[in-house]
């Protein structure tokens, strides 16, 4: 995969990997990122893991920020955004620590940012014909939230729940404000971002089955997730002061 010249040095790129008890997969993910994008700095945000996630990431040469207790994936990401702002990174890419996001797509995710068309790039599972790695209930859920996102913003996003995203500094700054949810920053965040005037774009990626660990969505959590998403989508539509 070719890379534009800016990606070499002039503009700093930070790869944020939020991780909670991902000791079995974190090493592979960090190695993958290094391989496909050696110029980027890597920051693993250890969200209060009980296992050796942070230690393993450090041994692999990633920067590690360790939260004192588990705050949720949104708050972990936001810690990474704050780090990126402080150390003047121009671009930020986020991907999951469980290995379902292939680091091979990092340069592709960053390209639309450098070519200055958009502010936030989302890796979507649905733009390319590939088998959806998950249950049909999940698929229906994603479709519903995609539809709601379209209703709220007029923008067609096929995969608003994807956590594989790249963004420029202005968006990172926006995500450091208090609206950013501590638990699931999905469709509601995209709607707010879109309504705040940022330009969004999706590019196709193929996601893998998660290698290890278990999904965020289990037990009663899906019900809370659905409730929370509906409410925060409604609220973000009602809200006037997006910035």
């Amino acid at each position: 995969m070719d890379r534009s010249c800016f990606l070499k040095r002039e503009k700093k790129v930070l790869v944020i990997i939020p991780a909670f008890n991902e000791a079995s997969s974190i090493v592979g993910v960090v190695r993958g990122v290094k391989q496909s994008f050696p110029e980027a700095d890597i920051l693993v945000v250890d969200d209060g893991s009980k296992d050796a996630t942070g230690e393993l990431a450090r041994q692999e040469g990633a920067g590690v920020v360790r939260l004192p207790f588990n705050l949720g994936v949104g708050a972990a990401l936001q810690t990474g955004y704050r780090y990126a702002l402080r150390y003047a990174y121009e671009f930020v890419v986020q991907l999951d620590a469980d290995g379902q996001h292939d680091p091979l797509y990092l340069p592709e995710l960053l390209r639309p940012l450098s070519e200055d068309q958009v502010d936030l790039v989302i890796g979507s599972r649905f733009l390319e014909r590939s088998r959806f790695p998950g249950s049909w209930t999940r698929l229906v859920g994603i479709k519903i939230f995609a539809f709601l996102t379209w209703l709220a913003t007029g923008q067609r996003l096929t995969d608003p729940t994807s956590g594989y995203r790249a963004m420029r500094r202005s968006v990172v700054e926006f995500f450091c404000s208090d609206f950013f949810p501590h638990d699931y920053p999905d469709a509601d965040v995209l709607i707010t971002t879109c309504r705040a005037g940022f330009r969004l774009k999706e590019i196709p990626v193929v996601m893998k089955e998660r290698l290890t660990g278990c999904s965020l969505h289990r037990g009663l959590k899906p019900f809370y997730y659905i409730y929370k998403m509906f409410l925060s989508i409604l609220v973000s539509v009602l809200r006037q002061d997006w910035r």
Binding site: V65, L67, F69, L71, A75, Q78, Y83, H182
Partner: peptide, 17 residues
């Protein structure tokens, strides 16, 4: 308070690093 605690925890983590 939850929001303040979250901000504090993030700040502590960043400072620790």
């Amino acid at each position: 308070m939850a929001s303040q605690i979250k901000n504090l925890a993030q700040e502590v983590a960043l400072l620790q690093k």
